[in-house]
Amino acid sequence: MTTTGSLHSWDVSTGVDGPGTRFVAFLAGCPLRCQFCHSPDTWYRRSGHPVTADELLREIRRYERFIKVAHGGVTLSGGEPLQQPAFTREVLRRSHEMGLHTALDTSGFLGDRADDDLLSAVDLVLLDIKSGDPATYRKVTRTGRLSPTIRFAHRLAERGMPIWVRFVLVPGLTDERANVDAVAAIAEDVPTVERVEVLPFHRLGAPKYAALGLPFPLADTPPPGTATIERVRDQFRDHGLTVY
């Protein structure tokens, strides 16, 4: 019996959510309320539409040959896909059985919900580390704690699973040197981290907040300048990490 999930949308993209050209499914629902979130329309399960794993796999199969030729795969993103672990598990497992590379894009906050069967169907984890300092993490996410992400990262490493760490650089929020070094120290301590992606903050999601009648917390925050971006990348490199 196939499972049913809440799907916000899907897209086919290159070079953003894992290697190669990928079918990216954005699931609806997320426990965090990150100040820099550019997709507030994915916060609630009700923001998506019901879809069975069979239906989503049918869409994936339409692109199967193209994805394989482009050395890509399937990525489940969100929202937070681990808020729907049964659905996520089935889609990843069946994608894996098709011979497609699979990636899970998660904050790790709900990492305890990912059982071994789910993780066995994952080739790569895109792990969003919002902050390296617990107090800053709470400020950034407004609802979350850092420790579940660290615990999840070490569990992945124990399984030998490749990890790409993602860090959103926000002026005045996550850009302090001590915070960046703390994120780098977390990544450095996880032996299967292959790379760190420094993602400069942007305000492209502002219209979504306006459409939902929500205030955008960072409406007056500028994107980081080139010098700040390079300084942060150098901090990660100083910890022996490969940086993009």
Score class of each variant (00 low, 15 high):
Val125Thr: 14
Ser39Ala: 14
Pro134Gly: 07
Glu59His: 13
Ile60Glu: 05
Phe236Cys: 08
Leu57Gly: 10
Phe109Gly: 06
Gly78Met: 01
Leu204Asp: 14
Thr52Leu: 14
Ile186His: 00
His38Gln: 14
Met98Asp: 10
Arg166Cys: 07
Val232Asp: 12
Arg166Ala: 13
Gly108Pro: 04
Thr149Arg: 03
Gly160Asn: 12
Asp115Glu: 01
Thr221Cys: 14
Phe167Cys: 11
Arg237Asn: 12
Phe216Ala: 13
Leu100Glu: 04
Glu59Gln: 15
Glu80Cys: 08
Asp41Val: 05
Gly172His: 10
Asp117Ile: 01
Gly78Ile: 01
Val183Asp: 05
Gln235Ile: 14
Asp133Arg: 03
Asp54Ala: 14
Met98Val: 02
Tyr137Thr: 02
Gly160Ala: 13
Thr21Asp: 04
Leu32Lys: 03
Cys34Arg: 03
Val243Leu: 07
Thr21Glu: 09
Val24Asp: 06
Val69Ser: 11
Ala219Arg: 12
Asp128Gly: 10
Ile163Arg: 12
Thr2Tyr: 05
Leu27Tyr: 06
Leu100Ala: 03
Pro215Met: 14
Val74Tyr: 05
Leu110Met: 08
Leu104His: 08
His8Ser: 10
Pro223Asn: 10
Val243Thr: 05
Gly20Met: 13
Lys130Phe: 00
Pro217Ile: 11
Asp54Thr: 10
Asp11Gly: 10
Ala114Tyr: 05
Thr226Ser: 06
Leu156Asn: 04
Arg45Ser: 07
Ala135Glu: 15
Glu64Cys: 02
Leu199Pro: 07
Glu64Trp: 12
Tyr137Met: 00
Ala114Asp: 04
Arg177Tyr: 00
Glu194Val: 10
His49Asn: 13
His154Leu: 14
Met98Glu: 12
Val91Thr: 06
Asp41Tyr: 10
Val196Pro: 07
Leu118Ile: 09
Asp115Pro: 05
Tyr209Ile: 07
Gly99Met: 08
Thr75Pro: 03
Pro162Gly: 07
Phe87Arg: 00
Val51Asn: 00
Ala114Thr: 09
Ala70Lys: 15
Pro31Gly: 14
Val196Thr: 06
Pro50Ser: 13
Ile150Phe: 01
Ala210Arg: 15
Met161Gln: 15
Ser77Lys: 00
Ser147Phe: 03
Ser47Cys: 15
Ala184Thr: 02
Thr136Leu: 11
Arg89Glu: 13
Asp11Ser: 08
Thr221Leu: 11
Ser39Asn: 15
His71Glu: 15
Val180Ala: 05
Arg58His: 14
Val196Arg: 02
Thr42Gln: 07
Val190His: 05
Phe201Lys: 01
Asp175Gly: 01
Arg138Cys: 05
Val168Asn: 04
Pro191Phe: 09
Gly205Asn: 09
